[in-house]
Amino acid sequence: MPPEVGAAGLPATRRRMPPWLATAALLLPSYAWLTLAVLLPLTAMFVFSFLHATPLGNKPVVWTLEQYRAFHDQPYLLGVAWTSLAIGLWTTGICAVVGFAAALALVRATAGRTRETLLILVLLPFWTNGLVRVFSWTMVIREGGFLDVFVRWFWPSAPSLGFLYTTPAIVLGLVHGYLPYMVLTCYIALLSIDDAVIEAAQSLGARWWTVLFKILVPLAAPGLVTGAILIFVPVIGAFMEPRILGGRVGVTMGTVIEDQFTQAFNWPLGSALAFTMLAVVLAVFATFSGVLRRSAAT
């Protein structure tokens, strides 16, 4: 648009908005909402984490750093943190293997309507209520549950395979809930790989495992890393799956923090633990962002 339009007789009010105004107008609603809905409560929690006790009633407000010493004062929390970390690693690892394989099959072996249908089926866990999803597993894997019934069809005297209230049960429930993230991120990453690149590798003498580990996995690494972050971060804070499927063994950082808010009514300790975890997660992000940037640059 020529700059002299106003001088050519058009009224000045018909001039276009400056571009920054349009950008601001588009961004403002989301950022205003995010500030209100996320930043304010989070700030409040951060402030709480420096208090001695929950500031309700007439208790005096006492500032302290003692909540952040929790890992030092209550060594059992280190064990809990380790459990959370192990569950997070197992869940992410299983999701990576299973999700990558599924994404690979979708990209390489399906097309058109079949692919669309299969992709929508991958999203099913997102459409079911989380609580229903987790509780349904208790019916499957408890002693004498559907799993046992099914096995005893073929082998009537089979011992019970039920593994409810164990760590594998927690991982099973978490994999079920978070697998779609990995399938989708890997699917997008694999979709962008040119078929000719795979054919070139084969023509040079590469068998399927060489193609997989030297071509497909490295080229889909950004998808794997994104999926891993999307899964690992919420999983180490998860409390529903550990509580329902883990029973007595299901004590994780997620459940401990939840307890501080709902049972012990110790909001400051809950906030301090939550922010400690946030710090760990940010450290994980910082580590992986380097990897991501490097793989994006090549």
Partner: peptide, 13 residues
């Protein structure tokens, strides 16, 4: 065999 493709098909990584 040695094969050369229209899209070059170099390994980008």
């Amino acid at each position: 065999i040695g094969m050369v493709f229209q899209s070059y098909a170099l390994f980008p990584h």
